[in-house]
Amino acid sequence: MATLQAQFKQFHDNIKLGTYEENQTLRDKRDLLINELATELKNEKVPDTDRALTFSKIDQGSYKMKTGIKPTDGHYDIDVGVIFDVTEDEYDPKKLKKLVYDIINKRNNRTVDYNKPCITVNYASGYHVDLPVYCKNSEKDVKIAWGKMTVANEWVDSDPNGLNDWVASISTESKKSRQFRKCVRYLKKWKQKHFSENGNVAPPSIGLTLQARRHFIFSTDNDLLCLINIVEKIINDFSNDFDIKNFRIVHSIDFKLPVKPYKNVYYKMTLNQQDVFYKKAEALLESLCAARDEDCDHEASKILRQVFGDDFPLVDKILRSDVKPVINSGTSA
């Protein structure tokens, strides 16, 4: 039975991306944009009032949740929400989102997209910042401006703070919350290696994070067993569905957000994409179990390298002689 805990630790160190607190560059990028927004909005008023239009920022996504992994293409993705101190009656969602869009869209070192859930700022140097725009009816009642630029937008129930809190409340014991975050990073690395980045082929990371949060059971000094449990439960969250178009049984998933608006986190994926997700999760579970059941750490590490890529360390083979019978020398002439 292999655990490869030391290799998992090394693997985690290899793929881990720091939080805002640990990463000055990311913090600078975030603060630059938020400060720019604050400066530009200095003289802006809430419509039909003399009240200054103010906002607060909320860190979101993997940097906040401490579950980020290094991007393969150097393309960092920063999520920072902008919660305006206005109620939904005081500002039209599209007008407010467009105001943010227009302010951010003034500089020429970046391109800005008006997307359904957020404003996305793309920098030439290869990272982008997602800025969801919120209003606040009360501390407990926050809504997100939802819709594309070409259609009417609406204020939709949202709870970014609640989501952050739910994920953070995994455990009061640091060793447990640390293992949870490690397992989320392992899942993200698996996703990075086995899914295309095109469209919605890959399950969104927030979905994997929330499923891992729901199903996490601490396993002392054994990340592999902890991960196996999570993946088993992820697979159990799928149910059989009928694909009328192709006349076949497929596996679909409906995993609800634990906070408002309680919608399916995988809502963007087609039935076929959900079925591919299921099959890949099954293959993942089979491999993790095969690694667990492997007597030889070298063989187990080879399986895990196929799962996670070369960031997972290869364990040396123990031979009956000190000299390897065959060595790849890499020489040629």
């Binding site: 031979l319 009956r320 002689s321 000299v323 019978p325 065959v326 060595i327 020398s329 040629s332």
Partner: peptide
């Protein structure tokens, strides 16, 4: 099962080599 070019074989121990293969 193995690269055939650019490999260094420990030909002095064929028994171990066969086991390895």
């Amino acid at each position: 099962y193995a690269e055939h070019d650019g490999i260094l074989i420990n030909y002095s121990d064929p028994e171990n080599l066969l086991d390895y293969i």
